[in-house]
Design a protein around this nucleic acid. Structure first.
Lengths: 243, 243
DNA sequence: GAGTGGTCTAGACCACGAG
DNA sequence: TCGTGGTCTAGACCACTCA
């Protein structure tokens, strides 16, 4: 037997799909809807939570619930990109970058395969589409690959990125791990998403031919409007055959 | 100001992390916990919902709430695999496969780039770890690549899969799209997960050198215990190389 | 201040699992 | 049957936004 929450969610979904409530429009107040459907407010709010998780509506405290405009999806493009063909995840209209120097610790040291307390340069990137935050990226590079002199001259991530092709030994491999989790409270507030909305978390490691990790990056993308695509040429994997 | 729900979730999380409640153990009844924390049952249940979304506990209707044993994570390995190194997502201990013939429609026809109503073979794979469902895969292959004669002899997905290397033209590329969404009611019940637990949804297309899609696959993995890894060799993007 | 959503209460009743 | 979780009610009170 379908719960009232789902029945209501289905009905509202239909009202949105058929354009009876249009993108950008405000939904009737929760109290209104509750009396319309003859349910209590918590029940109605549960129905709205379903639609919110689906990315169909947006709740704005003090203003109302709005049908979300069809949002451009955020596409993370996996694999390697030359400096020209930047990764789409941070090729967004506008990107805010904070550059700081930190020390490797715990998980980060493991990812970069460096000793604890190694100096790192951190690029904290927040991309926007208009006023809305889009995606969050934390990119870590060992300090010798992002020397202070170069950073002064172009303190951006791209500035450091363009130096990679000149590396010796050259870049060899990109390894990406994709998982789903709930955002941390920080991430939820920075991305302006509900803390109940799962995010796509991508960890990227770039290694040179010597096996050294030259970059580790953590991407956090809102799960309701992000996807990641990976295109791999078909080659017989030797390691898989060995296992 | 932290909500009571989060305060309680934090406290319970701590009780689990420090081993005061051990993996596999049942939590006190919700009514018990509610009176212990002096909150109403819905508030306490919200706290448990947080832990459930984190994959820390498991709710079993009529029995109780249990601390989840540390589950083996499900790892989807992206890119191509030779028939030997089967993809980990369906190389699980036991796999149930249903083979049926269907007709391409809508999204599926688009994925496979075949006309609507083209005959397809569908492999519906459900992998288990012990009694627990693990992951769900729906794999579609045009019928001429999975002829009835071959299916009679080995009606498994692997049986068909091993034929791919003999293809003319040979396989060229694997394209995978990863996204996050809520499970459909069907998926939630088959995988025995809460309908509120986001899943990792992976769409895989395998194409031969002629651009023909020889296989489309839809994987659904529980978000709380799955990840996907992609390893890509570093090759210079042709567009950039031409310049 | 008026209207909105966010959180919480203190119950009720139903559905499931095990003895 | 009993104890469990699942769903729902009909409010209360607080926080936020905007005029």
């Amino acid at each position: 037997m379908p719960s009232r929450r789902d029945t209501i969610a289905d009905d509202l979904r239909d009202r949105i799909a058929t354009g009876r409530i249009k993108p950008g429009e405000r939904l009737p107040a929760e109290a209104h809807l509750a009396s319309e459907y003859r349910v209590s407010t918590p029940t109605l709010r549960n129905a709205l939570a379903v639609l919110q998780a689906e990315g169909l509506i947006e709740k704005v405290h003090g203003k109302g619930n709005f049908v979300r405009r069809p949002l451009r999806r955020i596409r993370y493009v996996g694999g390697c990109r030359t400096p020209d063909g930047q990764n789409a995840a941070h090729a967004a209209p506008s990107v805010t970058v904070h550059t700081t120097r930190i020390q490797a610790r715990g998980h980060l040291a493991t990812l970069l395969k460096v000793p604890t307390n190694s100096p790192l340069t951190e690029f904290l990137c927040l991309s926007h589409e208009g006023k809305r935050p889009h995606s969050l990226a934390r990119i870590y590079v060992p300090c010798d690959l992002a020397p202070a002199a170069a950073l002064r001259e172009s303190p951006s991530y791209e500035g450091t990125m363009t130096r990679f092709p000149e590396l010796h030994p050259p870049l060899a491999e990109v390894r990406e791990k994709v998982s789903v989790r709930l955002p941390t409270p920080d991430e939820a507030s920075v991305l302006r998403i509900s803390s109940a909305l799962a995010v796509l978390a991508i960890t990227r490691q770039m290694a040179d031919t010597g096996g050294r990790v030259v970059e580790a990056a953590l991407f956090v993308l809102p799960g309701d409007r992000a996807d990641a695509v990976f295109t791999t040429p078909y080659v017989i994997d030797e390691r898989a055959a060995e296992e």
